[in-house]
């Protein structure tokens, strides 16, 4: 079994980045503490996932 070439497609990568961007916007003015905390953690997870795919975006964006 191999996953050596199991990369994300460009479309999948774009969707992942889009999810990150949407959550980043939400985190900027989220009025609900519970949602804000979840968004913060989700952003951290998405950023790590994107980084592992070699997607270059806002490193050190202070999540």
């Amino acid at each position: 079994m191999t996953n050596a070439h199991s990369f994300l497609s460009p479309e999948q990568e774009a969707r992942l980045l889009g999810a990150y961007t949407a959550l980043k916007e939400l985190s900027a003015d989220c009025p609900v503490p519970a949602v804000g905390a979840a968004v913060t953690m989700a952003l951290a997870e998405l950023r790590t996932a994107l980084d592992g795919q070699g997607v270059e975006f806002d490193y050190f964006s202070t999540v």
Partner: peptide
Amino acid sequence: MEYWNPKAETMP
């Protein structure tokens, strides 16, 4: 061979 992050681990 399987990798956690195939792209990063096999990047030229």
